[in-house]
Amino acid sequence: MARLGHRIAASTVWAILNAAGIEPAPRRSGPTWREFLTAQAEWIVAADFFHIDTVLNRRLYALVFLEHGTRRLHITGVTAHPTRDWTVQQARDLTADLGIRIQTLHFLLRDRDDKYGEASDAVFRAEEMKIIKSAPQAPRMNAHCERIIGSIRREALDHVLIMNEAHARHVLAYYEQHYNEHRPHQARNQLPPDAPEQPPAAHDLNTHKVLRTRILGGLINEYRYAA
């Protein structure tokens, strides 16, 4: 209500502020979220959980990390009980896997899931990384991880009936290798994350077929060995 006693609609206030070039609070200036992600891509690694339902109606959880700059994928583990202690171990495994490359990463982007906790954040802060939390119920703020989880489902999990944790780890390990070493990425001029340049020989363009062959071939060999 204005001081003169006249009630002003919210739309009127918005029109006045918009005409004056004043953006909605709390941001008054600076880059948008998309501009920030684009500008800082080389220094961001994002994390997210996703679930896997087995044929025995058991729910498993996997934790993925994605380096924005290189699009390199890390699937650190699968468990039926994703506790904070388990997440801390996954953070340690990732930092060990990254090796000296972790010095090039400055930000960890994650949501506000209780499964992370202060202890897992401390693993990354020890590497001088800043923790960036996405807004509540805003999965698009971590769109890169949401997209890779969709790719994992469409290209691997939708084609295989998962039996248990060991089976899920096996399938996801094959997919991670395929994704990093063979799967082309538009953002990298059709290069896989681990390929510094175009391979000399053309690969089978049917990447789904190649992936299924590798997964099923590995599973057949594993079952023969177990038998």
Score class of each variant (00 low, 15 high):
residue 105 L to W: 03
residue 106 H to A: 08
residue 106 H to M: 10
residue 106 H to W: 11
residue 108 L to M: 06
residue 109 L to Q: 05
residue 109 L to W: 03
residue 110 R to M: 08
residue 110 R to A: 04
residue 110 R to V: 08
residue 112 R to K: 13
residue 112 R to G: 13
residue 113 D to H: 15
residue 113 D to S: 14
residue 114 D to Y: 14
residue 118 E to W: 10
residue 119 A to N: 15
residue 121 D to Q: 09
residue 122 A to S: 08
residue 122 A to M: 06
residue 122 A to I: 07
residue 123 V to F: 00
residue 123 V to M: 01
residue 123 V to Y: 00
residue 125 R to H: 02
residue 125 R to L: 07
residue 126 A to W: 00
residue 127 E to H: 08
residue 127 E to G: 02
residue 128 E to S: 11
residue 128 E to W: 10
residue 129 M to I: 10
residue 130 K to G: 01
residue 130 K to W: 06
residue 131 I to S: 04
residue 132 I to G: 00
residue 134 S to H: 06
residue 135 A to N: 14
residue 135 A to R: 15
residue 136 P to D: 00
residue 136 P to L: 05
residue 139 P to T: 09
residue 140 R to N: 15
residue 143 A to Y: 03
residue 143 A to V: 01
residue 143 A to H: 05
residue 144 H to N: 14
residue 144 H to A: 13
residue 145 C to Q: 12
residue 147 R to T: 06
residue 147 R to N: 06
residue 147 R to H: 07
residue 149 I to R: 05
residue 149 I to N: 09
residue 149 I to T: 08
residue 150 G to N: 07
residue 150 G to V: 06
residue 150 G to R: 10
residue 150 G to A: 05
residue 150 G to D: 08
residue 151 S to I: 13
residue 152 I to H: 00
residue 153 R to L: 02
residue 155 E to G: 03
residue 155 E to H: 03
residue 157 L to M: 02
residue 158 D to N: 14
residue 159 H to V: 10
residue 159 H to N: 11
residue 160 V to A: 04
residue 162 I to T: 07
residue 163 M to I: 15
residue 163 M to E: 15
residue 165 E to Y: 01
residue 165 E to K: 05
residue 165 E to R: 05
residue 165 E to D: 01
residue 166 A to I: 15
residue 167 H to I: 05
residue 167 H to G: 00
residue 168 A to N: 06
residue 168 A to V: 12
residue 168 A to F: 09
residue 169 R to E: 12
residue 170 H to S: 12
residue 170 H to F: 15
residue 173 A to P: 10
residue 176 E to Q: 15
residue 176 E to F: 05
residue 177 Q to R: 15
residue 177 Q to A: 14
residue 179 Y to D: 10
residue 180 N to R: 04
residue 181 E to V: 01
residue 181 E to C: 02
residue 181 E to Y: 04
residue 183 R to H: 08
residue 184 P to F: 01
residue 184 P to Y: 01
residue 184 P to S: 01
residue 185 H to L: 11
residue 186 Q to H: 07
residue 187 A to Y: 04
residue 188 R to F: 01
residue 188 R to V: 01
residue 189 N to G: 04
residue 191 L to K: 01
residue 192 P to G: 06
residue 192 P to S: 12
residue 194 D to H: 11
residue 195 A to P: 03
residue 196 P to T: 05
residue 196 P to N: 07
residue 199 P to A: 03
residue 199 P to W: 03
residue 200 P to I: 06
residue 201 A to H: 06
residue 203 H to V: 11
residue 204 D to N: 14
residue 204 D to R: 12
residue 205 L to I: 12
residue 205 L to F: 09
residue 206 N to S: 05
residue 207 T to G: 11
residue 207 T to N: 10
residue 209 K to N: 14
